[in-house]
Amino acid sequence: MQYTVYILVVIGVIILLSSFVTVKQGTIAVVTVFGKYQRLLRPGLNFKIPLIEQIYSRISIQNRSVELSFQAVTQDQANVYFKAMLLYSVINQDEETIKNVAFKFVDATNLMQALIRTIEGSIRAYVATQKQANVLAQRNEIVLHVKEQIDQVLDGWGYHLQDLQLNDITFDEEIMRSMSRVVASNNLKAAAENEGQALLITKTKAAEADGNAIKIAATAEREAAQLRGQGIALFREEVAKGMTNAAHEMQQANLDTSVILFTMWTEAIKQFAEYGDGNIIFLDGSTEGMNKTMKEMMAMQLGQNPPTKG
């Protein structure tokens, strides 16, 4: 009798202790009664009816990730190899959502298999409509396509696709080598075009500089020629005035004007020889030639300045 009491006490203690359930943070426990859904237990210390209520499963509401590695074929029959990271979680903590998560699949392994195959199938279907040359540039388009196709399916399972990252997209080795050659040739082409543009700009600038230099030199030469012409004209005018004044003075003094003419003639020959820069000038060195030349010069001066009548 005494042993029976001890046994009953122990059984009672065990039953009492089993009626308390601890649920970890980030987890929700699903309770069933004789195999039928009954209620949810939130994080913390919870009480359940001993021997009647059972913990069917514990659902994590935290984010979960899984790595994917699979192959797809493009429209032009190129093999594409993907390595991706999938981030997903339970949509929310509502009772209906947790019931979907708990009872849609037999276990987590079946859920994971269905999730991975669905993601892979969506990506393969999209890649099959694209050409190999376009796949690398369409990472974002692939992710958006998968989210649009998968979100509705996952919603029925109680899950939400948080993120899909395509970490690596590769092709067969031969295709990778050909793509590298294409990139290298494009880079060489771009470099050649840039060098050509730089050379064109350099030559254009140099031509503009030469043109400006020629314009400046021509302007300076024109101004210098004008100044030389003005100087020569003034020189001739002064020479003519001096010759005329000297001749008038010698005539008033009853002196022979041939002396001054001879002096001016010899001075002119000296100037020709000193500043001629190698040019050849033919002069009549005879007395008649000198008189003829000087008289012509005097006549030109007198013609420009006719004497006034007294």
Score class of each variant (00 low, 15 high):
residue 1 M to F: 05
residue 3 Y to H: 13
residue 3 Y to W: 15
residue 6 Y to W: 09
residue 8 L to N: 05
residue 10 V to D: 04
residue 13 V to L: 15
residue 20 F to G: 04
residue 22 T to P: 00
residue 25 Q to C: 03
residue 27 T to Q: 11
residue 27 T to L: 01
residue 27 T to D: 00
residue 28 I to E: 00
residue 29 A to L: 01
residue 31 V to P: 03
residue 34 F to A: 09
residue 35 G to W: 08
residue 37 Y to W: 06
residue 37 Y to M: 03
residue 37 Y to S: 01
residue 40 L to W: 06
residue 42 R to D: 07
residue 44 G to K: 07
residue 51 L to C: 09
residue 54 Q to P: 02
residue 54 Q to R: 13
residue 56 Y to W: 12
residue 56 Y to G: 00
residue 57 S to G: 09
residue 58 R to A: 05
residue 61 I to G: 00
residue 63 N to R: 13
residue 64 R to I: 05
residue 64 R to Q: 15
residue 66 V to M: 11
residue 66 V to Y: 09
residue 72 A to Y: 01
residue 75 Q to R: 14
residue 75 Q to V: 00
residue 80 V to Y: 00
residue 84 A to P: 03
residue 85 M to C: 03
residue 86 L to M: 12
residue 86 L to R: 00
residue 90 V to T: 14
residue 91 I to N: 06
residue 93 Q to S: 13
residue 97 T to D: 02
residue 99 K to H: 09
residue 99 K to G: 02
residue 102 A to F: 05
residue 106 V to T: 12
residue 109 T to A: 13
residue 110 N to D: 12
residue 110 N to W: 08
residue 115 L to R: 04
residue 117 R to C: 00
residue 123 I to V: 15
residue 124 R to Y: 02
residue 126 Y to W: 11
residue 132 Q to M: 09
residue 135 V to M: 04
residue 137 A to Y: 04
residue 145 H to V: 02
residue 149 Q to H: 09
residue 150 I to M: 09
residue 152 Q to H: 05
residue 155 D to G: 01
residue 157 W to E: 04
residue 158 G to H: 01
residue 158 G to N: 03
residue 161 L to A: 05
residue 163 D to M: 07
residue 165 Q to P: 02
residue 165 Q to Y: 05
residue 166 L to D: 05
residue 166 L to K: 07
residue 167 N to K: 15
residue 168 D to Y: 08
residue 168 D to I: 03
residue 171 F to L: 14
residue 172 D to A: 10
residue 173 E to P: 06
residue 177 R to M: 10
residue 178 S to R: 14
residue 179 M to Y: 07
residue 180 S to P: 01
residue 181 R to K: 11
residue 181 R to G: 04
residue 182 V to Q: 14
residue 184 A to M: 09
residue 188 L to V: 07
residue 188 L to E: 15
residue 188 L to P: 00
residue 189 K to E: 14
residue 192 A to M: 08
residue 195 E to Y: 06
residue 195 E to Q: 15
residue 198 A to E: 13
residue 199 L to Q: 15
residue 203 K to C: 01
residue 204 T to A: 11
residue 205 K to P: 00
residue 206 A to S: 11
residue 210 D to L: 11
residue 214 I to L: 14
residue 220 A to T: 13
residue 222 R to D: 12
residue 223 E to Y: 09
residue 227 L to H: 09
residue 229 G to E: 15
residue 232 I to E: 12
residue 232 I to H: 08
residue 233 A to C: 01
residue 234 L to Q: 14
residue 241 K to R: 15
residue 246 A to I: 13
residue 247 A to Y: 07
residue 249 E to Q: 11
residue 250 M to C: 06
residue 252 Q to K: 10
residue 256 D to L: 05
residue 262 F to G: 07
residue 264 M to V: 13
residue 267 E to P: 04
residue 270 K to W: 02
residue 273 A to R: 13
residue 274 E to F: 04
residue 275 Y to S: 10
residue 276 G to Q: 06
residue 284 D to I: 07
residue 288 E to I: 08
residue 289 G to W: 06
residue 295 K to V: 05
residue 297 M to V: 14
residue 299 A to K: 10
residue 299 A to S: 10
residue 299 A to W: 00
residue 300 M to Q: 14
residue 301 Q to T: 12
residue 302 L to A: 12
residue 305 N to H: 12
residue 305 N to W: 08
residue 309 K to I: 12
residue 310 G to D: 10
